[in-house]
Amino acid sequence: MKRVYVQEQWCLACHLCEYACAFANSGQKDMSKALKGVKINPRIRIEERDNISFAVNCRHCEEPLCQKSCISGAISVKDGVVHIDQDKCVGCYTCVLACPYGAIMPADGGHVMQKCELCTANGGEPACVAACPNRAIVFEER
């Protein structure tokens, strides 16, 4: 299954992937309208210190601890992609406690959780990878 992989040596900490993610999941057609004046809540996050930086999003584990720990059965795996059914999620944060990568976070409002779902709902090609100016994240089979 294709996943998003990080090539850390090329990450420039420009944060474009975060804005692309926020926009792709905004459900809107115009990025300016979608994000102007908005504190974005992307599902991919940059860690940076000195000249080292990289983007972290869900690894879509084969044995996803989040899915096994979810108390409401809101997390499921479909064709390898780990999804959250935000209708079932009650916002108990157990998945945040379980995820070893810190790749699950509260959606806007904090009542339900959100995570990267590889843009399966946004056309199937991860927007973050498309936006990366230096191919520091790639979407491929490894």
Partner: peptide, 26 residues
């Protein structure tokens, strides 16, 4: 001004320090 979302990518990527973010006015 209508398009700029103050994402600060230009600021981070300009090695000549042309762009900057004005906290007060956002």
């Amino acid at each position: 001004p209508n398009r700029c979302i103050a994402c600060r990518v230009c600021e981070r990527q300009c090695a000549n320090k042309v762009h900057s973010y004005d906290e007060a006015s956002g």
